[in-house]
Structures are given as structure tokens and as C-alpha cells.
Nucleic acid binder design. Structure first.
Lengths: 172, 172
DNA sequence: CTATATAGTTTGAGTTCTAAATAAAGTCAA
DNA sequence: TTGACTTTATTTAGAACTCAAACTATATAG
């Protein structure tokens, strides 16, 4: 019998669903933070992250930057392009390896970084640093555990259990 | 003298930097999983999330869905539009309040949801569920703490914590 | 009936990914 | 050495997602 009431509330809420829900909120927070940065600094979160990274390791290649901050090269290329248009940094092919494109920060970019807009979540950093140490450790451990669980795909996993369609590219 | 030392490895790596780095990796993982979903199911992560949500609470409004999954209405509108084009769900204005748009899943959508893989990587769900309970709890607690710290924008100021839908179904 | 509030949609800007196209270097063999 | 292949890095093109702000339509006051 299909009940008259519409509310199909699901009590069954698995722990991993809760994890996903929490992650979603966190991701959204970061997103919103980025938006607010645009108003305060004129740069989005990713742009500022890259600019800071370039400032720290001046003269590194696009690929290095991408690896450092966990973004694809294509993504970094796009952001760097926008930053270059604003004269915050400039690109130049490497002398030693002409395949590489080195990125250097400009005076203007350096100034902007120095006036150091509160890095993305400076407010968060502040609160976080005030937590008792055990709590900081717990959070960090939990996150790293998650990273492992998600990453693991490429680490282990060699079982021969999966037949199904042979369309499983798996690992490499 | 400039060349010489290249490796400017980050010695100064504060806990909160590590947190951000880990989050970035997690976000990327989720992003990549979404891409792989497209190939396997034909839907992206967000699309599948919404479709599942609609399946669970059939006949809810766009706004309700948006709130439930922590996305803006505008975003949900766009995704729902794409899903409607694929005949996986359909929109209909509410009879009681013509401002509202109710979303209903179609037979086709229901079928797809039934056959769809979990939102997170299957392997992740699997591994996570195998963790000892205390570890699952720790991860969840840590994430919820992060949510608070990031959200804190609203509770740091005034002690009174507003509504903001205290919808945290802890479990465990 | 006007004024305000709410629900959804549209628009504009930015980020993100993959896949395919380029380009430069490195490797290997004749 | 030279030519063919392979590897590595960057760029381009295309599709989604994301949000805020502006806009439309409806609802609820006063």
C-alpha cells in the first residue's frame, strides 16, 4: 500500500553517508570562503593559493605547482593565465628544459601576497590553532585516514574478484 | 647567486596547513570519482546525489533538496534541468503554493538509482565500514568539528546560535 | 491595493576535469 | 648522426558545477 503521506523519511543513514554529508558542508564552506575573498582581495581562493605558492617557490614550473597543491596541470594553466593578465606573475620558458614553463611572481604580485590577505581560511586557522592539541591531532589523523581510504584505489587492490564486464581500467 | 638550492621543502608546516592540504586531496578525490561516475553511469556525482535525494523524498521542492544536500538553489536548478532533459525526473509547480516547484522521479530515474553505485567510491565505503567503530566515530566527529569551525562565522560573534537547520543526524 | 517576503530561474564569472593537440627532449637502433 | 618512437609538459576545447545577484512570479501582510 502506497501511503497517503508523502514523507518518506529514511532513518537508515549509514556512517559513510554522514561522512559525505559533512564533507559536502566543508566543501561548501570553502567555496563560500573563496567568494568572499574575491570581494576582499580581488582574487579567488585558488588564485591566491597559487600566487602564494609561486611566491614561496619562485621560478617553479606549472607542473610543480600543480603537484604541490593537488590540482591538474590544465587547471593551473588556466589560473596562471588569469593571474598573468593581472600582472601578478609572468611565465617564461625554462632555459635548461625548454619544455617547462617557469612562473615568476611580479613586484605587484609580491605586494599583494604580502598585504597577505588572510589566506583562505585564516579565520579558521585561528580557531583551529586554539583547539587543544589532542583535538588538532584527531582532526588531522581523521583527514589523513580519509585521504588514505580514498586514495587507496591506486595503492593496493589487486584482488581478482571482479569479473563483470572487463571494462575495468583499474590501477596502472 | 641564485641557482644552487632548488628544493625549498616546507619545513614550516603548521597543523592547519596540513588540514588544508588533506582537504584539498579529499576534494580532488571526490571530484575524480564524479568524473568516473560519468563513464559508468552517465551521471556526475552531483546529479546522482540529487537524483537519489529525490528518490528518497519524492515530491519535495527544489529548495528543500538544495538545503538537504548543502547546495544553492541556483545550482540545484541547473542540475535538475539536466536531469529532466534525460527524463530521469520531472518538475511540476505545486498546487498549494505556485511559487514552489516540486520534483518527482520517473520510472527511468528510479531504475537508474536502483542500479547506481554508491556516491562515494565503492571501495571507500567498503573500507570505511570495516574500520573499528571507534575509528568511524573519530572521523565523523572530526569532520563535524571542522564543519563547526568553518561555519563558526555565525557563532563566534553572538553566543546565540541561530537556526541554520541543526540537521546533523549523528548516528552511531 | 501596495509593500514586503519567499521560491525559482537566469545570467555572469570562475573553477575544474578529461581528451586531444602541440611541442620539446630523451632513447634506441642502424 | 639521423630518424622513429617514447616521454613529459603545456595548451586548447568542451562540459559541468558553483555561487551571487538580478529578475519573475506568487504569497502574505497592512
Amino acid at each position: 500500500m502506497k501511503g497517503a503521506d508523502v514523507t518518506r523519511n529514511e532513518d537508515a543513514f549509514s556512517p559513510s553517508d554522514a561522512v559525505l554529508a559533512a564533507l559536502r558542508k566543508i566543501i561548501r564552506s570553502i567555496e563560500l570562503n573563496s567568494r568572499s575573498l574575491v570581494k576582499r582581495v580581488g582574487l579567488t581562493g585558488p588564485q591566491l593559493i597559487i600566487l602564494k605558492e609561486v611566491s614561496r617557490m619562485n621560478g617553479s614550473s606549472i607542473g610543480e605547482v600543480a603537484r604541490t597543491i593537488s590540482l591538474s596541470q590544465a587547471t593551473v594553466t588556466g589560473i596562471v593565465e588569469r593571474l598573468e593578465k593581472r600582472n601578478l606573475l609572468l611565465r617564461r620558458r625554462s632555459d635548461v628544459d625548454r619544455r617547462k614553463v617557469m612562473v615568476e611572481i611580479t613586484q605587484e604580485g609580491e605586494t599583494l601576497v604580502r598585504d597577505a590577505p588572510p589566506l583562505m581560511q585564516e579565520a579558521f586557522v585561528d580557531r583551529f590553532s586554539r583547539l587543544p592539541e589532542w583535538e588538532q591531532s584527531m582532526v588531522l589523523s581523521a583527514l589523513q585516514l580519509l585521504v588514505q581510504l580514498m586514495d587507496a584505489k591506486s595503492l593496493s587492490e589487486s584482488s581478482g574478484l571482479m569479473e563483470e564486464d572487463g571494462d575495468i581500467p583499474v590501477v596502472l
